[in-house]
Structure formats: structure tokens, C-alpha cells
Computed example of a mutant assay.
Amino acid sequence: MSAENEKDNDWGKSAAAVVIKDGKVLLVRHTYGAGKGLLIIPGGYIRKGELPDAACEREVLEETGVTVKAEKLIGVRFSDKDWYSVFTASYVSGEARSDNDENSEAVWIDAYEATERDDVPDLTRIMIQSALKETGFVQTDFVSRNKDRIQKLYTI
């Protein structure tokens, strides 16, 4: 992550994606922190002024070289210091590859196998299971009284 991007991050907000293509899920092997050495879904911090779905798409591309389109919101984790949103995302293009920074590899693994692996942490496992259910909140169009702000509404 470049120093330029670091100053633009909103450190209390992050987004990630579960990308499933042909029954396989896209995972990255993390190189730092609590997730070091584990296979996790790609994601990261939201930049100031960026919406979570756009951050999800950007982070997947930066970390894996794969272009995706965010679809359903399938999970939100809240803590006393931050929040984390997870979307399903459809594959658009690209070959999975490591960013050689935040991850040491980007791989496609059978989605059901991934939920049984010891090197896949609980949060990633739960999000993959949620994506496999094919349910979640979808973006719903609406007209807001405050038309000068970009807003998105997700509903069941």
C-alpha cells in the first residue's frame, strides 16, 4: 500500500468480497497481522468519500488482478472501533495473481473445500457459507430528498 493511499484511508471502515466463479472462491494468503499465513477473502480499507461497494471492487483488483462487480451485501461486522462490510461479487475479467505486498498468493479454491480448511479463518469461512446461500441484501433504487449526496439503499 502506497503512502499516498494510506493518507486517504478511512481507518474505521473496510470492505471485502466473496468472489465465486465456477464453484471456486477467490482467496489471498495474507502476509501480516492476525491473518498472516491464512487464506482470506480480498478486501481492505475504504478511502475517504468512497462507498463500500466501490471499495470492495477496487480492493479485489488491487490485491488479485481480478476485476469484479459488487452485488449483494451479505455481511456487516461492527465493533466498538470499526465496521467491515462484505459483498458477493461477480467475476468480470483477469487472472488471479498476488500483489506481492499484502498477500503472497491469490488462488481459486473449491468453495466448499475452503469452508473446511484449517488455514481459512472463521470470518472468511462464514462469509463463503453466506455467499453460497445466494441470499443477501440487494441495492434498491430510491429517490432521496437530499439529491446532492450519493446514497445507496440495500434491502431484502
Rank of each mutant, 00 (worst) to 15 (best):
Q129Y: 01
D10M: 05
I74S: 10
T64Y: 08
N100Q: 05
W83S: 14
F78V: 13
A15F: 02
H30E: 14
S98D: 04
E62H: 15
T140A: 15
Y91M: 04
R125G: 08
E113N: 03
E63D: 08
Q151V: 01
D80T: 03
F87N: 06
R97T: 00
L26G: 01
L27V: 05
A114Y: 01
V60N: 06
G12D: 10
V68L: 10
G23A: 04
G33N: 11
F78A: 10
W108G: 09
A114C: 04
D118W: 01
G12L: 06
L26I: 02
A89E: 05
T64F: 09
E6F: 14
R97S: 06
I109S: 08
L61R: 12
D141S: 12
N5Q: 11
K133Q: 13
T155R: 07
S93H: 08
V107R: 03
L61D: 02
E63Y: 03
D118M: 04
N5L: 15
N146Q: 02
G33D: 10
I20L: 10
I109R: 02
K36W: 00
Q151S: 11
T135H: 12
E4I: 10
I126Y: 09
A16G: 15
G94A: 09
R58I: 09
L27A: 05
S85Y: 04
L38W: 01
E59Y: 08
G33R: 05
E6P: 00
V66A: 05
D99M: 07
K7M: 14
C56T: 15
D122F: 14
V19E: 02
W11D: 06
I109C: 04
G49S: 07
M127N: 15
T135A: 11
L61Y: 13
T67P: 00
C56N: 11
I20K: 03
F142M: 05
G49D: 08
L38C: 01
A131K: 10
R47D: 12
K36R: 11
R117N: 03
Y112R: 15
V60R: 06
A131G: 11
L38I: 00
T88D: 11
W83Q: 12
R29K: 13
E62A: 15
L39A: 03
I41S: 09
W11R: 14
L123M: 12
S14W: 00
D80M: 10
V60T: 08
G75N: 13
A16E: 12
Q139S: 12
I126C: 09
T115D: 06
N9M: 15
I74D: 10
G12P: 01
D110L: 01
R125Q: 10
V120N: 01
W11I: 13
L27M: 09
V76N: 12
T67V: 15
K21N: 11
K147Q: 02
K81M: 13
Q151T: 01
E102H: 10
R29I: 02
T124M: 11
L27F: 00
M127L: 15
I46A: 13
K7V: 11
K13Y: 07
L153C: 08
R47I: 00
R29P: 00
C56S: 14
H30L: 03
E62L: 15
G43P: 02
F137P: 00
E6V: 12
K36V: 02
E63K: 12
V92D: 00
Q129E: 15
D141N: 07
